[in-house]
Amino acid sequence: MSAPALRAVDLTKRYGRLTALDRLTLDVRPGEVFGFLGPNGAGKSTTIRLLLGLARATAGRAEVYGVDAGDVARAHRSLAYVPADVALWPQLTGAEILHLQARTGPGTDLVYRDELVERFGLDLSKPARTYSTGNRQKVALVAAFATRAPLLVLDEPTSGLDPLMEREFRAAVGQARQRGQTVFLSSHQLAEVEAVCDRVGILRAGRLVEVATIGRLRGLHRSEVTVSYSGTAPLLSTVAGVESVETTGDGQLRFTVTGPPAPALRALADAGITALSVREPSLEEIFLEYYGTQAGR
């Protein structure tokens, strides 16, 4: 089997006493779109800086397609990067920056680049000092998506984009996936992650707390079930995984289920169920469940 697009093994970064990243072990498979979630200060950007060799790990190792992340001249031949806060050379125009990136980068599809410039509505004749946050981000996005690098590392790439551009961004991620490119996407836009990612990793206080497909994440979390029944009220309070049972009307119940729903379904079997609806949690609800009640640590 080929090497993972990204691999972190016990990756640790300490700044003095502060442990910004604690023994992160993670594989990102070639061809997948991987979402990387976590609240501010969880260590997402630190992880990306280590994966890109911009910072040196205190312990552990990071690899890009089997190449040590510290060997940037080789490792960066297979990746393109969009930083969280894009800063450009103020005196260069957008066109000049794209040219510089193409000439120093891992290989660029110039025709596709022109198409992306068109789609993102970017005016390339302006010097970068006149660009807004969103426009600076677009320059970096166009430069990255136009490469044929097998891995795209995107750190909060849409924080400055309007909804129209956000749509273009999702389309560009989709096209990258079709070409077989791997995408590592760090983001706070949970709807966006939900829409484009195959798997997500959740980071909290420097530690990876979960890596799963979004479907599986949902399974791990509370689904909200609403039932209407004609028989006797089902006894749910003792059923494993069921919580917050409440009567919402005459012959109507609402409760949450965590984990396999089979025991709850068995308990409902004799109640003469006339209607049943299950609402899976959104990624936002899952995210808030991870952090909302455990702010800090």
């Binding site: 890109l52 940037v72 393109a80 930083p83 800063a87 450009l88 990136q101 120093t104 891992p106 590392v153």
Partner: peptide, 20 residues
Amino acid sequence: AAETDRRLTLLTAQPISRAR
């Protein structure tokens, strides 16, 4: 200064060694 205010970031993410 270019490194500190992140103008250099896009270049440091290219396949260019720090020594170069």
